[in-house]
Amino acid sequence: MYQAHKTGNVLLYTCHDETPFGHDPFVYENYIGIITSGSADQYTDKGVITYPTGSLRLVKRNQLLKVVKKPDGQKPFATITVFLEQETLKQYSAEHNVKADGVYVGEPVTLVENDAFLTGYFGSLLPYFDQPEKLTPVLAEAKTTEVIALLLRNPALKNFLFDFSEPHKIDLEAYMQRHFTYNVPLTQFAKLTGRSLSTFKRDFARIFSTTPEKWLQKQRLAQARFLVSQKNKRPSDIYLELGFETLSHFSYAFKKQFGQTLTELQTLSRANS
């Protein structure tokens, strides 16, 4: 069970249950968000990063992000998120003559120091959890402008905020090997690798000698086989992590690919361990 109230760029979100990965982990716009209750686990190709209550993250647009949101006992998982949309940032840039010095090359998720000013800023938004109707569009716009100004106290964040360039063409093979478990449309994989959809499909066929759909399924199922047989993972715990939308589809695809059920593989693995 969750509640979400969004006015303008400001989103107030609470959830009383642990949430699995969403079906669309693509980050469309920059945002800054603070966890006011609970914690979040971010799954990356290098492992899991846990963000406790109080974590303040600045997240870059045009990336893939897998997060599990966790309540804290009787306390729900709750966040305040302010989206820093491109049009808003372009308007701020023009009005205040602030421009990027170059393309942003830092981390796509940056922890921001929650100093007295930012603590006060997010504290001023907390009362709206109880009275969300009081957060008017005018107030939400003012709060968005305020947080941009607060972030710009750190000159290193100027390129993060005001780099309006689109993803450039990158190594497709390396990118797909790192991100094949993300359940997103091919159009988003194309965008993130700096290609049109037609160019993405053409380059993909040249590199992998198959279609993206067939390759993605094969990679995900091979990873599933490894996790179940070698790491004793339960299918119900990994199907979302591997990019499958339902456990039934995962089980059907696995049996079709390998000629055995996941239950049979689990039984065999336990017998051999």
Rank of each mutant, 00 (worst) to 15 (best):
L84G: 12
Q86K: 15
L161W: 03
F83T: 07
E87A: 09
T88F: 13
E107Q: 11
H96K: 14
K75W: 08
K169D: 01
K169A: 06
G123C: 12
F164L: 09
K90E: 15
P132G: 05
L126C: 09
I148V: 15
A156M: 05
L152T: 02
G123A: 10
Y175T: 04
G120Y: 10
F129T: 05
L135R: 03
V112Q: 01
K169G: 03
S165C: 05
V98G: 06
T119M: 12
G106L: 02
V103L: 05
P127D: 06
I80F: 08
L125E: 07
F83S: 09
L157C: 00
E85S: 11
A149H: 11
P132Q: 03
T136D: 06
F77H: 08
L84W: 05
A174H: 03
L89T: 13
Q91K: 14
L125W: 03
L150Y: 14
Y175G: 04
N154W: 01
E141L: 07
Y175A: 07
Q91L: 14
V82P: 08
T136K: 04
T88K: 15
Y92I: 11
L152R: 05
S165N: 10
Q86P: 07
K143P: 00
V138N: 06
L151R: 07
F117H: 13
D163K: 08
F83D: 11
N159K: 04
L152Q: 02
F83P: 01
E146S: 14
K143V: 07
E95A: 13
Y104H: 03
H168W: 00
A78G: 15
Q91D: 15
P137Q: 06
V109Q: 08
N114G: 06
E146R: 11
S124Q: 09
L111R: 11
G123T: 08
Y104N: 01
N114C: 13
K143H: 11
T81A: 12
V82T: 10
E113M: 11
F83I: 00
F83E: 13
N97K: 15
V103H: 01
E87M: 10
D163S: 09
A94F: 14
S93D: 13
A174G: 02
I80N: 08
S165I: 09
E166D: 15
H168V: 02
F122S: 08
V105S: 07
L150R: 15
V138I: 13
N154C: 03
F83M: 09
A140Q: 04
E146G: 08
